[in-house]
Amino acid sequence: MHTIRQIVGLVKKDLMLEWRQKYTFYGLLLYAASTVFVMYMLLHQPADKVWNALFWITLLFISVNAVAKSFLQETAGRMLFYHQLCSPEVFMIGKMLYHVLLMAFMSVVCWLLYLWFLGNPLIKLGYFVGICLLGGSSLGIAFSLLAAVASRAGQSAALMAILGFPIMIPLLLLLTRVSQVAFQEVYQPGLTKMFWMLGSLDVFIVALSLILYPFLWKN
């Protein structure tokens, strides 16, 4: 009970910080909007496959920025403060939950922007939104530990991209495969298997992050 209250407190604190320092959040929204606008200027109405690939790449870049920002705003002094308040696992779970919320919101925003600018090739809207929420939160979870590693090295976005992109490829491959069904009536063999793989990959990453994060925290 106590740990749950701690986790809720941490997530609430992150959300409150977001509300009070709105400029970083608006910065993120503007980042998404201008990325999608650049895509629109270059491609106008792309083919289904291109639309799908571009969507996940955009989400990948948004998640790098969103997650890096949340870890970078924690100064060394504040980390010491958290250290006295809660265990590293609780801190990591709190961060991950916050990233899931943030990325779920950002992926819906990204999806709306894509519909607005690049046209709507989707035939299963609800299905795609579901995949989108799942994919966005998976990316948020997967980048959490990498953001902690990169923030330890003192430099964020560039290092995070180097560390993260190769690791995200299995995730992105699965997501593009799964979301293909939303574009046309195709028979996709092994769809449920892919969902299981996606879910188990997420659980695996969460477990690994919780095991490894305490070692990163020590100074």
């Binding site: 530990l145 590693v149 560390l163 690791i167 490829i169 299995p170 990959l201 690994l208 070692f215 990163l216």
Partner: peptide, 18 residues
């Protein structure tokens, strides 16, 4: 040593799905 050990373990674990 510590930070790169953490990344090394993470990378090796992610090698398996790959």
């Amino acid at each position: 040593a510590r930070v790169s050990a953490v990344y090394n373990i993470f990378a090796f674990a992610m090698l398996f799905p790959l």
